[in-house]
Design a protein around this nucleic acid. Structure first.
Lengths: 259, 259
DNA sequence: AGACTAACTTGATCTTGGTCAAGGATTCGG
DNA sequence: CCGAATCCTTGACCAAGATCAAGTTAGTCT
């Protein structure tokens, strides 16, 4: 592992409070790796060998069953994923693939399991990460069960706006089909419902969303702290939502290149 | 707290590995209380004052938004709930009410937060409980997103059968409307879809389910370890599914009596 | 730049599941 | 044992969302 990576990782919420010796121990066998876009990292059902930390790029977590597939989350820097599986030494419940060119830190699971029993501060960090991951997933389930697709989209746009610093204009950070899948609907239905939100103060041009009437949009999906967040820090325990950037800042060089 | 409660609690997965002094500290201000059926324990959005442990009876965790309401889980002995909220000192994401007469242990959240920083074994127990809770919730979301209502019901029946020791005949432990809500559908749709499963080897008489053709039922909902469990131990971190009993064993004295 | 590919949109149609309304079945209290 | 309340079931209808099938746009590769 490169020295600069070492420092960067050391500053991550999950690792910054632990004792130096513990950090050294966890980092045994840890390495950062760069993956091309659209690469499968692992499949659901596999054994949990490594905790993954996204350093650059983005990763989609998805699940499938009987031919159907659904996006469960998109993880961005500096989020972690499959912590729960590593802790319990159980098979992953989700599959993962990179969306863009992505750099990932792979931390051997046995080291984590060993060290967090000895370093209370590390245990605290893990507990907080896991608790947040649980809450994110609970919110996801509530969202699916309590709202219809139009409301889920409206809520998503409001959340993205929030993450962009309450901006009224922002760019969707991920493909629409992926957002649709994340929100539990087909791409077609997403497209139509999104268009229909024009009546509720949403303007669309390509990937750029402009909220022209925030009050109307909130009326379409009354905000609820207990579903929509806040997602306190950037690291949602592997459940960070796709995060938007400001319009001009797009930086979409590393997008999917091959299918 | 009664001495017998003390011993019982001490044997819970969450508490049995911790140091005696830590246990004493956590138990400061802890008390067990008996609640009548259908009593609201707390509402979503409230501050997390207590970790709850179900000692007897059962508790429904549900969520609502804009008039709609959905069951998120049913917790039975000896499961805990809202651990995540306690750890993060954040508002509950769900509401809770008793289903039957229920005895609950109320453990002050500040004590938990303080002690798990000092007792590594306790931290480990919390981490494992949380990890399992996360995985349960992830499975719940996958189930909702990847299966239609008929499949969810078939899967539920297979799971209940499993929990009853692979029995081909068992009794539903909770009201059907509650199961319907848990599975994310209306009671009417549940009733119809359940009936339609007669074609797939399911016989019904009141609350009693008989699987006459397990292979057919599995065909209706191919089992998947990564959605349906196993829910390794009884304590699913507040996410244990309603558990069935064997037919004769019903013990349904304490069922909902008043509205 | 032009061709190719993949994502997105739109329309027509159909299925699933929700809504509304009423009729049975249980259960509980007297 | 009867009556009220609640849960469950059934039917008719409706609406949300899925599917299928083109088109259109946009991004990538040569």
């Amino acid at each position: 592992m490169r020295a600069e990576d070492f420092d960067e990782v050391r500053r991550l919420p999950l690792f910054r409070s632990m004792r130096p010796a513990s950090f050294q121990a966890v980092m045994q066998g840890t390495y950062a790796q760069r993956f091309p876009p659209r690469l499968d990292l692992f499949r659901q059902g596999q054994g949990a060998d490594f905790l993954h930390v996204v350093l650059e790029g983005s990763v989609e977590l998805f699940a499938d069953w009987q031919g159907a597939s659904t996006t469960m989350a998109v993880v961005r820097p500096v989020g972690t994923f499959i912590l729960a599986a590593c802790i319990r030494d159980l098979p992953y419940l989700m599959s993962a693939r990179t969306l863009e060119q992505t750099r990932i830190l792979l931390v051997p699971a046995p080291g984590i399991r060993a060290v967090f029993r000895e370093d209370a501060e590390f245990a605290v960090s893990i507990v907080e990460e896991l608790a947040e991951a649980f809450r994110s997933m609970a919110r996801h389930a509530k969202n699916l069960k309590l709202r219809n697709s139009r409301e889920r989209i409206a809520g998503y746009l409001l959340e993205q706006s929030e993450l962009a610093g309450r901006a009224d204009r922002f760019v969707l950070q991920v493909e629409k089909r992926l957002v649709a899948s994340y929100l539990g609907m087909t791409a077609e239905n997403f497209s139509r419902a999104l268009r229909s939100l024009a009546m509720d103060g949403v303007e669309l041009k390509g990937q750029t969303v402009t909220i022209t009437d925030r009050a109307a949009l909130v009326r379409a999906c009354p905000n609820d702290m207990l579903i929509d967040g806040p997602n306190p820090d950037a690291t949602g325990g592997g459940l960070t939502l796709p995060r938007p950037a400001l319009p001009r800042e797009r930086r979409r060089k590393g997008r999917p290149g091959q299918g």
